Simulated assay, not measured.
Amino acid sequence: MPVASMTVQLRMEHSHSLKDRRQVVRSLKEKLRHGFNISVAEMDEAVTWQSATIGIAAVSGSRDYLSGLMREVEDAAQRIAADLGAEVSDAWWELVD
């Protein structure tokens, strides 16, 4: 059964505290989780207030479905991050059988 995993690196230039950072990360995770029925988790420690790494995973019986889903999730992550005053500095995904 194919599994898709994505890593999204966020940059939050306007974040001035851990609370600001946490609000952006939590909101992005919730919106992606509810919008796409995927697993989403923060992957790194809160080392700086201006960056975060988010991990995303999905399972399906169809590689084609997962490929389309990951493209949609990446687009949505960029859009949601921009709405929250952040930006996706990098994103990559892979399919594993």
Rank of each mutant, 00 (worst) to 15 (best):
1 M>E: 02
3 V>P: 02
4 A>D: 01
6 M>W: 00
6 M>H: 09
7 T>P: 06
11 R>C: 08
14 H>E: 15
14 H>T: 12
15 S>R: 03
16 H>C: 06
17 S>N: 02
20 D>G: 03
21 R>M: 02
23 Q>V: 11
25 V>M: 01
26 R>A: 08
27 S>Q: 08
27 S>H: 06
28 L>C: 00
28 L>M: 05
31 K>N: 13
33 R>I: 07
34 H>Q: 15
36 F>N: 06
39 S>R: 12
39 S>L: 11
40 V>T: 07
42 E>Q: 05
44 D>E: 11
45 E>I: 14
45 E>T: 14
49 W>P: 10
51 S>Y: 01
52 A>T: 00
54 I>K: 05
55 G>L: 04
55 G>A: 11
58 A>H: 09
60 S>I: 02
62 S>R: 05
63 R>Y: 12
63 R>E: 15
64 D>R: 14
64 D>N: 12
65 Y>V: 06
65 Y>F: 15
70 M>N: 10
71 R>W: 02
71 R>G: 12
72 E>V: 00
72 E>P: 01
74 E>N: 10
76 A>E: 14
76 A>H: 11
78 Q>G: 14
79 R>P: 10
79 R>A: 15
81 A>Q: 04
83 D>M: 13
87 E>N: 10
89 S>C: 12
91 A>D: 05
91 A>P: 04
91 A>C: 13
92 W>E: 15
93 W>R: 01
94 E>G: 10
